[in-house]
Simulated assay, not measured.
Amino acid sequence: MSENSSAQSGTAVADDPAGRPMVRVEKLHRSYGTGAAAVHALRGVSFDIPRGELVALKGRSGSGKTTLLNLVGGLDSPDEGRITVDGVELSALGEDGLLELRRDRLGFIFQSFGLIPILSAAENVGVPLRLRKADPREREERVALLLALVGLADHAAQRPGELSGGQQQRVAIARALANRPKLLIADEPTGQLDAETGLAVMELLRAVVRSEGVTALVATHDPQLLGLADRVLELRDGEIVEQ
């Protein structure tokens, strides 16, 4: 089945990864509002992200970072331009295809952690696997592996309220990896953490990219964290001004 025919059916299909970037963004425009009141969040943004890299996205508040992450993650649609993730052009997918893409190939990490308060750390990590109706034994093994990977094997039974902010973000990272995504998208993942804890979380993301073989696009404003990235993209007034 060709990519085009699969896209028309609303299903995301794997493409040959040889020589292809994980993410390709081409001449992306996104505005909010109309007329004189319109806000131009993105103005012709283009870049590639090679597979297996951790790319940091920096820029002041209002520079367009979150808008760009939402577009790459299939949570919003551009006014103009094209986004390709893992060989799949997002504009060619229907809503079902976008849901499948987000479920099977993407992992999201947010500043606010987004954990379910009444669930334990292990149960939070296992949520994506339950939604996929994974085999219980497979789910338990994957959860245990991920909690060990993020250094929380001894905290599996604790609920978010019993964990520090850094520990909660580690649980969120483990949850984002549950379905073995190919791309991690993180929006200011250290924004609620102190400098030392934030650096530890960013170092963990760096290690995860290597150990799990994933690609990561991370928005951050912290200069100390930018040095851990393979490459830094700077957004200013909706445009890429430095790579």
Rank of each mutant, 00 (worst) to 15 (best):
R130P: 06
G238N: 02
V209H: 06
A37G: 13
V88Y: 05
L99D: 14
S6A: 15
M202G: 06
E196C: 00
D187I: 09
L183T: 15
A121K: 03
L99F: 06
V208H: 04
G198R: 04
G62E: 11
V214L: 14
R43N: 14
A200E: 15
L93S: 02
G62Y: 10
Q111R: 13
G59T: 03
E188Q: 14
S31F: 10
A134V: 14
G52H: 07
A229K: 01
E203G: 00
G19W: 01
D15T: 03
L69R: 03
Q168V: 02
S77I: 08
G94K: 01
L119W: 08
L147V: 02
G74W: 09
L226G: 12
G238L: 01
V143F: 15
I173R: 07
H29C: 13
K133D: 01
S112R: 13
G238V: 02
D154W: 00
P78K: 10
Q169L: 03
Q168F: 01
V85T: 11
L152S: 06
L149K: 13
Q111S: 15
N70H: 15
A148C: 05
G87Q: 03
V241F: 03
L90Y: 00
R137T: 14
A176Y: 13
L101E: 07
P181C: 14
D86C: 14
A157H: 00
V208S: 03
E188T: 11
A36E: 09
A37W: 07
R60L: 15
E212D: 04
G213E: 06
P160L: 02
G198T: 12
I116S: 08
L205C: 04
L75I: 02
V218C: 12
P160N: 04
V125Y: 03
V72K: 02
E89S: 10
S112I: 11
E239F: 05
M202H: 06
A148I: 01
A186M: 08
M22F: 07
P21M: 05
L129P: 11
G227C: 00
S46C: 07
R210W: 03
A144I: 08
L101M: 09
S2W: 00
E138Y: 15
Q243M: 00
R206E: 10
S46E: 09
Y32I: 14
M1D: 06
